[in-house]
Simulated assay, not measured.
Amino acid sequence: MRRQTVEAAAYRARHHALDMGEAQGQGYVGQALGAADMFACVYADQLRYRADDPHWAERDRFLLSTGHYAIGLYAALAEAGIVDVAELDTYGSDDSRLPMSGMASYTPGMEISGGSLGHGLTVAVGMALGLRHQGSTSRVLNFLSDGELDEGSTWEAAMGASHHRLGHLIAMVDVNALQADGPTAGVLRTEPIGDKWAACGWFTQRVDGNDVGALLDAFDAVAERSVPTGQPAVILCDTRVGRGVPLLENREKAHFMRIDADEWQICREQLTLGYEGVPA
């Protein structure tokens, strides 16, 4: 039942992402589709929050380091009841609270402003330290991309988290093997990623990021090991850009997609066809 609940939330979030993308005709739709299962696991199963009070002091914090993934997070926030589904229609428009890149000053539930990559984990480490000094039991979850592993500041933060024994800090890395300048392996080879995180002292797991069951098992393992031992945890999530929509999964230029007007409904139909149990 737990898995089905998360899968249903991810399915609806993918539809939200397509609706938002159609309003602009383009955008980071592929990342939103690829990471939908990750976001759904966080908001439908893991995160402690109050939808009507985004600043509740005892909430868990979810930090979106990759600001351009905001379209995917907005979809998850709508499913969580933090943002009204009707407001998604304003995505990327003038005076909207839902800009194309995440801004904490505008959007309910957005903990940090993202944009230049490599800052999220450093902020997460500082936030986790601050919460511990306050005696808080709140967790800090930081969403990164594999492209951010090119940034030295990410690894400095990783070492700092282990040094300070931040067992209430969880990093999730979307390993979709693609960044703005091309395939990640061609821009800067970061493999073996798992060995590097482990060498920094993190409890490291690598899973299929589009397999909800595997994601939930990974979070369960974190709860059993990291919090009691004070070891920060990272879940490396292999995902596919455009997941759930074959038309977009096979598109060559997938980092920032331009989708023709007649293709949006095809995308919705393919998404619905590939999912069982929830009507369109």
Rank of each mutant, 00 (worst) to 15 (best):
E87D: 15
L117W: 09
G25A: 15
D208F: 07
L77T: 10
V207E: 00
G242E: 00
G109S: 01
E148V: 15
L215F: 04
Q134E: 15
L77C: 15
I235V: 11
T184L: 14
A23T: 14
A23C: 04
A10G: 12
F62R: 12
R50Y: 10
Y11R: 05
G27Y: 00
H164G: 02
G274K: 05
V187K: 14
V241M: 08
F143N: 09
G34Y: 02
F219V: 07
E58D: 14
H15T: 04
H15L: 15
L216C: 07
V241K: 11
V42P: 04
G114M: 09
Y91F: 14
E269F: 12
D84L: 07
G135N: 07
G182R: 01
P99N: 02
L77Q: 04
A23E: 12
A214E: 15
V245Q: 00
I82M: 07
G114H: 10
M172C: 10
G160V: 02
G92E: 00
P99D: 03
L178G: 00
A261S: 13
L188P: 03
S136W: 06
E79A: 13
V42C: 10
H16I: 04
S138H: 12
M38I: 15
Y43C: 12
G102K: 14
Q24M: 15
D94H: 05
A78G: 02
V207P: 01
A177F: 11
P54V: 05
L33A: 03
E151V: 01
G30H: 02
G147P: 02
M38Q: 07
E224N: 07
D84P: 02
A223R: 08
D37A: 08
V245L: 00
R206Y: 04
M172S: 14
A78C: 12
S145A: 11
Y43M: 14
T154F: 14
M172E: 07
A40R: 13
R97L: 11
A171F: 00
R97A: 11
G118Q: 15
G115T: 08
